[in-house]
């Protein structure tokens, strides 16, 4: 069954029917948000059933749109947290990607600025590597990007999308070895993106990120995961009561090949490992339960089928 990431937007009126429909179809709800009278559901639904879901949503005044980034966690890497890079360029990127269903985390580097002095420390590197993809929101000069990017990408093994003011071709020229995606014409700004050409650039950026993640999905599909991360999320939500005491908007964040469980590793890692998925197969059989470098969270990395020879 091929799942398609979708977003349902509608009112609170009879929204439970949509929730039940997704469950009946064998889909997974990644996030359900109620904002005043609105309901936003991000879910993975079988591709063949999307049209039927649209028809059922119509009388409820709900809309179903494809959101290619649902179920992904993306690091937006900013050279620093100073006024030069925040809030404008980096927050524009982070916020825009959320519209497409991504969960974005801002990673403000401690010493990511400067041509000669830019560097990435071990903690930053590890945090970025816990994501599905990293977007480097860099500045205005090709010369600077050329020099500093070598230091900023050192040790990063997740796909990178590089943005900066120079054109896409110039970015491609000044980065060696190449990265997975480029978005040119999007440099440091001192205002929010609001002009049509700026919004177009954000659209282009979202498309580029989708493309890069699609390539990653294809890679993962060659050696499928032992369990789908949204399914693992359902198991955690059903069988680990402590998760319901977490106040974070997404107590369990779904990634393309893993989960971030926002519970302290020291206390709950064993419980997570021991969770039974089905027929005696436990989480520890199909995934590594690791301490996340983000706060004290738990990072669950699902193993591929070739490693476990188990598929649930």
């Amino acid at each position: 069954m091929i799942f398609e990431p979708v977003t349902y937007k509608g009112g609170v009126y009879r929204y439970e029917e949509i929730v039940e429909l997704i469950e009946d179809l064998g889909g997974y709800i990644v996030q359900l948000q109620q904002i005043a009278g609105d309901i936003i559901i991000q879910a993975l639904v079988p591709r063949a059933d999307i049209e039927m879901m649209r028809q059922i949503a119509k009388p409820l005044n709900g809309t179903v749109t494809l959101s290619p980034l649902v179920g992904t966690e993306i690091a937006v890497v900013s050279p620093s947290l100073e006024i030069h890079h925040l809030p404008h360029a980096s927050c524009d990127v982070a916020e825009y990607l959320r519209r497409f269903g991504a969960k974005t985390n801002m990673v403000g580097l401690a010493r990511g600025f400067g041509k000669r002095i830019a560097q990435l420390n071990v903690e930053e590197r590890d945090i970025i590597n816990e994501h599905d993809c990293a977007i480097y929101v860099l500045g205005n000069f090709q010369e600077c990007i050329h020099h500093k990017f070598t230091a900023l990408r050192r040790g990063i093994h997740v796909p990178i999308v590089l943005t900066g003011a120079p054109s896409k071709e110039d970015l491609q020229q000044c980065v060696d070895p190449p990265v997975e995606g480029y978005v040119g014409g999007m440099g440091r700004m001192a205002h929010r993106a609001k002009r049509p050409e700026e919004l177009e650039k954000l659209e282009e950026m979202a498309a580029e990120v989708s493309r890069v993640l699609e390539v990653r999905r294809t890679e993962i599909a060659k050696d499928p995961l032992s369990v789908m991360p949204p399914r693992l999320m359902q198991v955690v939500l059903e069988k680990l009561p402590a998760i319901h005491d977490v106040t974070s908007p997404t107590p369990v964040t779904v990634q393309m090949a893993g989960l971030r469980v926002k519970l302290p590793y020291e206390t709950y890692a064993r419980d997570v490992r021991d969770l039974e998925i089905e027929h005696g197969i436990r989480v520890r059989d199909v995934a590594d339960v690791l301490p996340s470098r983000m706060r004290t969270y738990i990072w669950v990395r699902v193993k591929p089928f070739s490693e476990t020879h188990v598929m649930v």
Binding site: Q142, P166, G187, M189, A190
Partner: peptide, 21 residues
């Protein structure tokens, strides 16, 4: 003024925005 035309254009806007803000 800047040797890179793109950077120059961006800095013109940044300077304008900051002085205005």
């Amino acid at each position: 003024e800047s040797p890179e035309a793109t950077g120059k254009a961006y800095y013109e806007r940044i300077a304008g925005d900051v002085l205005q803000d």
